[in-house]
């Protein structure tokens, strides 16, 4: 369980995350949505302990992320940011192997190698395993990084805008994969998404943020409504039901 307790983060005089409390129980996909600058990514970074809040605490399975040793936490919680380095010339396999660093510090055991093989297989990267990251397409590279965090084998995975810069097909594949990981591997996944329709179709729960606060929290059906979307994004969005899910038509 992830327990966020009255977390506040400021940059200068701007409050980016404002006294947020939230509990995410184990299992399922939780989508963080909101306009640019709403504080979603900042909140995710605070949970993933890459940012320190001015106030408040985050606990993962009872462990305070600000106080627990990094290596301990790295076996329970992983965070994947969008701006991943592709400039480093390493192969897909080397990248995925880094996912085992919290366990063996680089001296890979038989078990580690099994994890690496499974992660590469799960993401269907076998044919690219020995290819350098800078020679992959955007979608392949995204899969390679997801394979790395999968290899890290944590119960909780935080993904910051994993669909950025992906085309329709790869975005849909990635989102399906995320849901599949939550279901098959019992992961608890928190994902920051820009496109609310991806959240509507794939998330179990949607948490909407605005100006650093949580303004709506619930199932896709309860969040993706014209009224709530108006509150969150300040635009009028008609919502239609497609395949049993709400679809926001925000193109007009």
């Amino acid at each position: 369980m992830i327990e966020i307790d009255r977390v506040t983060k400021r940059y200068g005089t701007t409050t980016v995350v404002d006294d947020v409390s939230l509990t995410i129980p184990p299992g399922g996909v939780t989508a963080l949505v909101g306009a640019n600058g709403a504080g979603k990514s900042t909140l995710l970074s605070i949970i993933g302990r890459t940012l320190r809040p001015e106030a408040g605490t985050v606990r993962v399975d009872g462990l305070d992320v600000a106080k627990t040793p990094g290596a301990t936490l790295a076996r329970r919680l992983s965070i994947l940011r969008q701006e991943n380095q592709v400039a480093v010339r390493i192969t897909v396999r080397e990248l995925v192997e880094f996912g085992r660093f919290p366990y063996s510090g680089g001296r890979l055991t038989r078990e580690d190698l099994d994890h690496v093989d499974r992660a590469i297989e799960y993401l269907q990267l076998e044919q690219f395993a020995n290819r350098p990251l800078d020679r992959l397409s955007g979608g392949q590279r995204q899969r390679a990084f997801i394979a790395m965090v999968l290899c890290q084998d944590t119960d909780y995975m935080l993904l910051d805008e994993p669909l950025n810069n992906l085309d329709m097909r790869h975005a849909a594949q990635t989102m399906t994969l995320i849901r599949q990981m939550a279901k098959d591997l019992q992961k608890t996944i928190v994902v920051v998404i820009h496109d609310i329709n991806f959240a509507a179709f794939h998330a179990d729960r949607i948490v909407a943020m605005k100006d650093g606060r949580i303004v709506a929290d619930g199932s896709p059906q309860s969040i993706i409504t014209p009224g709530t979307l108006k509150d969150v994004f300040e635009i009028d969005v008609p919502v239609h039901e497609v395949a049993g899910r709400p679809l926001a038509v925000y193109f007009a």
């Binding site: 993933g48 302990r49 990094g70 301990t72 936490l73 790295a74 992983s78 880094f98 996912g99 890290q152």
Partner: peptide, 8 residues
Amino acid sequence: EFAINLGV
């Protein structure tokens, strides 16, 4: 962030 994620 990559490094911190892996406990470094």
